[in-house]
Design a protein around this nucleic acid. Structure first.
Length: 272
DNA sequence: TACCAGGGCCTTT
DNA sequence: AAAGGCCATGGT
């Protein structure tokens, strides 16, 4: 588990091998964190901006009050979860154990469901540099300015009132109509994203896939990264390769409840 | 069933 | 420098 303390308006996390911010912020689950020249990272989450840095086992959240940390960042960074305990469970599987020992400290973030849904619609049939570009243009054009370079993610209501023409600056291609459909269904409360995490994973999948442009892969990402479903297991081409090569008979039962978290390590291993 | 639809990054040639 | 592969979903 991760201990923390407050000092000089910063939060200091003593995270042993349970938190590697570079791997966590740049492993394909979030697209708006950028590394600064001093190796710290900056990002906008909701209407907040954060600078975060790491020095060995100490992670520093800069200029964050105790209240803001407890109320928001603690959950965002999944600090309530004991990753050492998870690593113990994962060590039952040789492949996973090797991946964990190589890439200690990847954490699954608890992100905003609307931003996650929209981001993973954009991610489909796409590569990471371009995904980041489209999302950046989306925020710059339609989000609120939060600081010098950082914008909030535009709300579903805001996007729902736009047309495909309005979104041409994004250069999102055929995904534009999917973004609009998602925004309209969310803004009208036809899909209530805040209630998805209370559904069974089967019903949650069905609900999300009512959106045009959301299939099994995108819905699984939304469930894992923003709806507290650690058992969600997104299968992209890389993970299909992992399964074919290492798990022809399926993922071990003991891993399944945390399959999505395990997946982050396996995915990273396969891509490197 | 198989293919195509935006587009741009990446690897190979 | 040019060509070809890659990519998740819906539609034909």
């Amino acid at each position: 588990m991760i201990d923390y303390c407050f000092k000089n308006n910063n939060v200091y996390l003593d995270c042993k091998n349970e938190f590697n911010i570079a791997l966590t912020l740049d492993c394909g689950q979030a697209f708006r964190w950028r590394q600064n020249s001093d190796l710290s990272w900056s990002g906008a989450v909701g209407n907040k901006v954060l600078k975060i840095s790491q020095d060995g086992n100490t992670v520093i959240l800069h200029s964050v009050s105790e209240n803001e940390f407890i109320d928001f960042w603690y959950d965002y960074f999944d600090l309530g979860r004991n990753y050492s305990e998870l690593y113990n469970i994962f060590s039952n599987d040789k492949t996973l154990d090797d991946a964990v020992k190589k890439y200690y400290g990847i954490r699954v973030l608890n992100q905003d469901p609307w931003e996650t849904l929209c981001s993973f619609i954009i991610s489909q049939n796409n590569n990471i540099p371009r995904i980041k570009g489209i999302i950046e243009r989306l925020c710059e054009n339609f989000g609120e300015k939060l600081s010098d370079k950082l914008f909030s993610f535009p709300t579903a209501e805001k996007i729902a009132n736009l047309s495909a023409d309005d979104l041409t600056p994004l250069r999102a291609g055929f995904r534009t109509k999917y973004i609009l459909d998602a925004a309209k269904k969310v803004a009208s409360n036809e899909i209530v994203l805040s209630k998805i995490q209370n559904l069974s994973i089967e019903n949650a999948r069905i609900e999300l896939q009512k959106i045009c442009g959301v299939g099994p892969k995108v819905s699984e990402c939304v469930l894992l990264f923003s709806c507290k479903k650690p058992e969600a297991f997104p299968l992209d081409v890389w993970m299909k390769r992992v399964v074919a090569e290492f798990y022809p008979n399926g993922i071990p039962e003991i891993i399944k409840p945390y399959g999505g978290i395990a997946q982050q390590y396996l995915f990273h291993m396969m891509r490197n």
